[in-house]
């Protein structure tokens, strides 16, 4: 006789929790073993970690105030230059603020913007992309055309337009970056799900009695998370650069909150007599983004199953 009493339907959040737990357990040990074979990615990872620690413990690392300086201490050069002092290891800016301190606090902004904008983009892009790729049909047509439309705008111009319309600020910055940022993830997720859907394990899951929702979340998604993760890392560098560009233009983070982009902008007028004011935050951006990109490349080598020879 068919049993129907012992069947309960499971809420969707349990599938999601499940995926997270299973992926976590699976990957961590393998991942570490693989990472050690990619020294460049490993070094890049360490650099990123240093940035993250610096951002987290900024108030403990430095004694200076990031937002208020002393006008008598303006434009002091870095410690190794003539006239520099170790009180201000990387010198001071036009308002007498310690650049080292502002770099540390600026890392908070950059990392937060990178993580949040990419994180939200992944969630939106993955959800819509997976649904479009799995169900196809009209839903897919509408979403894909909308994505194509957004792809037609240059990213920075689009973000400038949105910021000009909504006004500057941290929240608006995240929104401006995600408005277009999800499209990349949508396209990737859609394509990957379409490819995965043709594989036999999906049919086998149907045959074993799984629902479409469950197959999409609990069977297919874990198989595409690696590509999503790689893209997320690579996009994070891009998001940080875009944030810096917007802040440079005065549309992003507003002074006096330290952001690397606006710090570069601050130093433009004194570039000839105080090069460090612009250059040092510029280098901070370069090193972080370079490290993220190198780490992303390494991650792709490690995680992409197509590159892996078993």
């Amino acid at each position: 006789m068919t049993t129907s009493t012992d069947i309960r339907t499971q809420p969707a959040w349990r599938y999601l929790l499940d995926i997270r737990l299973r992926l976590w357990r699976r990957n961590l040990a393998d991942f570490w073993a693989e990472l050690r074979k990619h020294p460049v990615a490993l070094i890049a990872g360490v650099v990123i970690l240093i940035y993250i620690l610096a951002a987290l413990f900024a108030p403990q690392i430095t004694a200076h105030d990031p937002e208020r300086g002393s006008l008598r201490q303006r434009l002091i050069p870095p410690a190794w230059e003539e006239g520099g002092s170790w009180t201000y290891p990387l010198g001071t800016d036009g308002q007498g603020r310690d650049i080292y301190t502002r770099i540390l606090f600026g890392a908070r902004v950059s990392l937060a913007v990178g993580l949040l904008s990419v994180g939200i983009s992944v969630i939106i892009g993955l959800a819509l992309g997976a649904a479009a790729g799995y169900y196809r049909g009209r839903l897919d047509s509408i979403l894909s055309r909308f994505a194509d439309l957004l792809m037609a705008f240059p990213f920075l111009i689009f973000a400038i337009g949105v910021m000009a319309f909504m006004g500057p600020g941290f929240t608006n910055l995240i929104l401006a970056l995600t408005f277009k940022g999800w499209v990349e993830f949508f396209r990737l997720a859609r394509g990957e799900v379409m490819a995965e859907k043709t594989r036999e394990y999906v049919e086998a899951a149907r045959v074993s009695g799984q629902s479409h929702t469950r197959i999409m979340l609990s069977e297919i998604t874990p198989n595409i998370m690696q590509s999503i993760f790689v893209l997320a890392t690579l996009r994070m560098g891009f998001m940080i650069v875009t944030e810096a560009s917007l802040s440079f233009l005065g549309l992003g983070i507003q002074p006096p909150t330290p952001a690397w982009g606006s710090m570069v902008a601050d130093g433009r007028n004194t570039l000839l007599n105080a090069w460090w004011v612009s250059t040092i935050p510029g280098l901070a951006i370069v090193f972080l983004v370079l490290a993220i990109n190198l780490f992303g490349e390494g991650l792709r080598d490690i995680l992409d199953p197509r590159l892996k020879i078993e």
Partner: peptide, 8 residues
Amino acid sequence: STLNPAFH
């Protein structure tokens, strides 16, 4: 191809 490659 019938087994899901992502899981034990």
